[in-house]
Design a protein around this nucleic acid. Structure first.
Lengths: 229, 229
DNA sequence: AGCCTTTATAAACACGTACATAATAAGACG
DNA sequence: CGTCTTATTATGTACGTGTTTATAAAGGCT
């Protein structure tokens, strides 16, 4: 068998690690590499493109391909549906809707997500449990202009997260990770004490520039998010 | 111009969003699509492959291509060199080495990263500042068996993070994100009060199964990590 | 010297063909 | 009737060739 693009990737990686092509170094052009590996240029091209994706190489037209000097490897993680995340651990998933009300978007929300003044939004608060342990407290606002049929759904059985990913497509999303000290209210929900450090995700979602939803997700004490490079 | 793979991606996405191809639906085979778009099968193939990468589609041989029912869009973020992260905001970067000592790997470290008993490791503690504000406290252990020349480097001017990415290649890495309450020591370093919620990253790095380094990175109060989908 | 315009070059993209591979469906056979 | 073998089929991978595009570098102009 001829060299597959996988083999080429492996060889290139080996050479980089062996410092044959140290960081910053220009490596030979595609035609030359194709000749060396005895394969078509397209095959080399694919291997190179994937290595750029992986954050190992940098390429510029005319300038050539070079090894990234600061290899900012891109970590990839997927945002799972929370139910799947819990059931995957073997625990069973329980969801409780705590509060559901339609309000006009408060100022802080409008400033955050560009919703016009007076716009109605649906505010939901709910808890997700793994077995009998609190797992996540979800504080969510849904833009009813973008998702009118949310107003008619009761969210008693299915969480807003899950409902939204199934019903509403989106084009852009932002995730902000941070650590917050639990307020007494949140501490209560998550069955911990005031001030406990809580891993928090803020998630904002847009469909073509118009905001769909904004959510604050407070995870249980000791929650860790893991990802591999 | 013929349809580029980008156009095809865009069209497919539009159709998915318009519910022409709802979640779970099988979409036509590559040959058929190629005929429709008036392009080569390879072009369709590339578009499809990238959409799988983006977490939009699922493909199986023979079974065909279908729209993922729960679109777990994969968020990608890069781990920048801390100096770049700071200088990019306009602030100037300052680094201080607080402590540097060679010790035999303690039990908790060995259990975490599979280092043989009695192995020497280099323990470093340092601070990174943005202007005059504390930015990150770094607590790092370097496996001297994997990186012998670290023993001869003083780390006075260049942080271990930066030195390592430049000097030592790695094959695997793990990142664990969590929130921790600041101990009084860490609160001191980060110029905050005891118990403040601190965004924390634990990073472990391997080169072909052997551990290179383990680090705990404590970020300043109010640090947020942002990523887009 | 500094600025603008070629020009050569290397990657980016696309095409059409061919064969490989995995998984399913259909048929042969005990 | 169930099991094994054999088509069939859709994606996966690779090839060789050709065109397009960005851009660094060289050359020309003010």
């Amino acid at each position: 068998m001829r060299s597959s693009y996988r083999d080429i990737k492996a060889i290139v990686l080996t050479r980089i690690r062996a410092n044959i092509w140290p960081p910053g170094a220009n490596l030979p052009g595609e035609i030359e590499l194709a000749k060396e590996f005895g394969c078509a240029r397209a095959t080399v091209n694919r291997a190179m493109r994937e290595l750029v994706d992986d954050g190992i190489l940098e390429r510029k037209r005319k300038a050539g391909t070079k090894v990234k000097s600061s290899p900012t490897r891109r970590a990839q993680f997927s945002i799972p549906i929370i139910r799947e995340e819990i059931t995957n651990t073997g625990a069973d998933y329980r969801y409780v809707l705590l509060e559901r009300q339609t309000i006009t978007a408060p100022g802080w929300l409008r400033s955050r997500v560009e919703i016009p003044k007076g716009q109605k939004v649906l505010h939901l608060r709910c808890m997700h449990y793994a077995g009998r342990n609190p797992y996540q407290f979800e504080d969510r606002w849904i833009n009813l202009a973008a998702v009118p049929n949310a107003a008619e759904y009761d969210f008693e059985d299915i969480g807003p997260n899950e409902w939204l990913v199934r019903e509403v497509p989106f084009t852009d999303g932002e995730l902000v990770f941070s650590a917050t000290n639990a307020s007494s209210e949140i501490a209560n929900f998550l069955n911990t004490t005031d001030g406990t450090a809580i891993f928090t995700i803020e998630r904002t979602t847009w469909l073509d520039k118009v905001n769909v939803t904004y959510a604050r997700l407070y995870f249980s004490r000791d929650y860790k998010m893991t990802t591999r490079l």
